[in-house]
């Protein structure tokens, strides 16, 4: 299959994903109606659909670790962030869930979502088993949302103060960069499934030959995606914190930097 053929035909019209998305959209409008910010919700849905329908999904599905990493990043950082932004101001967590609003839990969820699913056994299982893959997706979205809650919760009072937010984001960025470095420089495969893909679409020769993506390079790109562009998402968020800090007329909250 050539590159052109691949990008035109490898769209997977996954019915479960489509139905879930439709249900989520209906649910969103029934719950929040006019009060929400539907543009953000729409953006979240679009990214979510792209993750599962576009040809990248086919690549991530057993061919390329780097494509899998791209999905991973979008599901942990982008979709949950957009979802939180789409919530109305009135939204708040109800009692059994309030413990999710502790900063430490948010931090562990965000960093854990990265580290946990890159343990070789789990990474392999998520690629080979549909059930595990579904669990992975759900957990990534949930953990990502818990992570972003500290920064993007609907009301100012629910968020960390900007200096604390910067520390929160910077340390998370560092923790994920370290994993990115390990993936980049690891001489062994972190997710062995991608070393010898089952060539279901007849794409392997194109990927290895035309694209020049050997399995070593593929893993390096995966690690680098986690290391560099992902860190840039955190950096952007850090800058947003600074902007928020300087624009807030509210009294200063003095937070230590740790």
């Amino acid at each position: 299959m050539t590159t052109y053929q691949f990008f035109t035909t490898a769209w997977t019209w996954n019915s479960i994903v489509l139905i879930l998305s439709a249900l989520a959209a209906v649910g969103y409008f029934l719950t929040f109606g006019q009060r929400g910010r539907p543009l953000y919700f729409g953006a979240a849905l679009v990214v979510f659909l792209l993750v599962f329908i576009s040809p990248f999904s086919a690549l991530a599905n057993g061919y390329l670790f780097s494509a899998h990493m791209l999905q991973h990043i979008l599901l942990v950082l982008i979709v949950p962030a957009l979802l939180l932004l789409s919530l109305p101001q009135s939204f708040s967590l109800r009692p059994p869930l309030t413990y999710l609003s502790y900063p430490l839990i948010g931090w562990v969820a965000g960093v854990g979502a990265m580290w946990l699913w890159h343990a070789p056994a789990l990474c392999n299982a998520a690629t080979t088993s549909r059930a595990v893959s579904a669990i992975q997706t759900t957990s990534l979205l949930l953990m990502g949302s818990v992570f972003w809650w500290q920064v993007l919760a609907p009301r100012e009072a629910q968020r960390l103060s900007p200096p604390a937010g910067i520390v929160y984001l910077f340390t998370a960025c560092t923790a994920c960069s370290v994993l990115g470095m390990i993936l980049t420089f690891a001489p062994v495969s972190i997710c062995p499934v991608y070393q010898h893909p089952v060539d279901r679409l007849g794409m392997l020769s194109t990927i290895r030959g035309n694209w020049g993506l050997t399995s070593d390079r593929d893993q390096q790109i995966g690690g680098l995606l986690m290391w560099v562009p992902m860190c840039l998402i955190y950096v952007t968020a850090i800058l947003a914190q600074l902007a928020r800090w300087h624009s807030s007329p509210a009294p200063q909250t003095e937070k230590s930097n740790a």
């Binding site: 910067i166 910077f170 960025c173 950096v235 850090i238 800058l239 600074l242 902007a243 300087h246």
Partner: peptide, 8 residues
């Protein structure tokens, strides 16, 4: 803010 960005 750009100092922070440079630092990071």
């Amino acid at each position: 803010a750009s100092s922070v960005a440079i630092a990071v």
